[in-house]
Design a binder for these strands. Structure first.
Lengths: 226, 226
DNA sequence: CCCTTTTGGTCCACTTTGGAAAAAAATTGA
DNA sequence: TCAATTTTTTTCCAAAGTGGACCAAAAGGG
């Protein structure tokens, strides 16, 4: 994604320099961190630049303004996330639906640990009606949701996933993974859960599967794959 | 709680006036809303005063400073919440453990709908290590957690709650209710879930019970109550 | 009707805000 | 090598916002 200039849509007469890419990436990382901690309003561009170790006018240069920077940061987080999901799906495409969904959940948990902003940003933006929220939903959430949604419905029909409104089911799974990991600092102090321990991550995804997908896959009929 | 002056610990020579109580309450409501939307850092006292429809120096008068106001607001939200929980527990004290836990979950969902700040504030404060977070955990979270925690362990022994780390179990329940409702604005647009519909709330708490407490209570032996 | 509590209005000293502008430096491609 | 271009540095701005102090006016209590 950051291969070509983020801003200039005119044909670049000369190719982008390496240091520019580095700067953009530093700014994106810093932006993700800052926005997820303090929300859009609560974050200043200077704060972001400082975290990135970069002079603040570079934000204007690379991303035009605060709003565009936010969008670029969201694209970065959710784009990478979507990629992880579809990689997992690809890797397990030969497996049965339950294993595929388990792989998705496991990927979700791992990603949410590495990038808690995934959930924090949602909570921040969902706080009040908001153009950024709408943009985020249309651009990133819906595509993920509809796919996962369909998989869950099928699992319900197979008697693997618990019955009930699949939309609710999906969002509960989502919160039990992403939402849980977003509370990192709190969980250790309040419940003794250490999300830095890799065992904990496994425990989490296994529990999610056990709870939300309690059924066994019916014996596979040799003709029908999915 | 707001019966006596929030600030002055000296004996009040004269009792607090009614309008003062009203002002404090307006400020508390506004503070909860603002803090949950924009976090501590992202919220200005002037913003709070404006939402409350009150002149901003009144914050200094009633709560001394921004930090004290935040704590008073947290006390208000979590105090009321704890009260709701123990009322529910009280109301169902004759019932079996599963019904009691179901009542707790239902109360949680209802409260989280009325006061989404319950979860939002946690996400905000858990974003980075933080004195307010520690204060909140010690003062409000731990008491609730230890009680609920014990109930869950018992339900696991009875084969009602799903097995596994009870701390994880507890937090997943917590996120499937409070965390879910904190996303209100998003859920409608992304998944078609309308949390303003009372039916939805019932659906949520019922699904949580079905998922996390799938077992039936064993036939009650006449001698042992709990 | 006096005295306390509460509020309104004003002021302050200071920081922070997002962004503009232009000069300087680094890199590219020929 | 060197001119054109990209990227960074430095400086500046006007505006708004910051938490909080202060005091006179108003309201309410006893």
């Amino acid at each position: 994604m950051p291969d070509e200039p983020t801003l200039h849509n005119q044909p670049p007469a000369r190719k982008q320099q390496q240091r520019s890419i580095v700067t953009q990436q530093k700014l994106l990382d810093a932006a993700v961190e800052a926005f997820s901690e303090n929300g859009f309003k609560g974050t200043s561009t200077r704060d972001i630049a400082e975290r990135a170790g970069v002079h603040h006018p570079l934000i204007t240069y690379h991303f035009k303004n605060k709003d565009q920077l936010w969008r670029a940061a969201a694209d970065y987080v959710f784009g990478t996330f979507t990629e992880s999901l579809s990689n997992a799906l690809d890797e397990y495409k030969e497996q049965d639906p339950k294993q595929r969904m388990s792989a998705l959940i496991h990927t979700y948990v791992k990603y949410a640990r590495a990038q808690p902003a995934l959930h924090k940003v949602m909570v921040q933006e969902a706080s009040y009606p908001n153009a950024r929220l709408d943009w985020l939903i249309e651009r990133h959430l819906k595509p993920i949701f509809t796919v996962t949604f369909g998989m869950l419905e099928k699992l319900q029909q197979l008697g693997v996933a618990v019955p009930g409104n699949p939309a609710l089911l999906f969002n509960m799974i989502r919160l039990s993974s992403g939402g849980l990991l977003a509370l990192g600092n709190e969980l250790k102090a309040s419940s003794g859960i250490d999300i830095d321990d890799p065992k904990t991550l496994n425990e989490i995804s296994e529990m999610i599967v056990r709870v939300f997908l309690p059924g066994k896959m019916p014996a596979r009929r040799p003709d029908s794959a999915n």
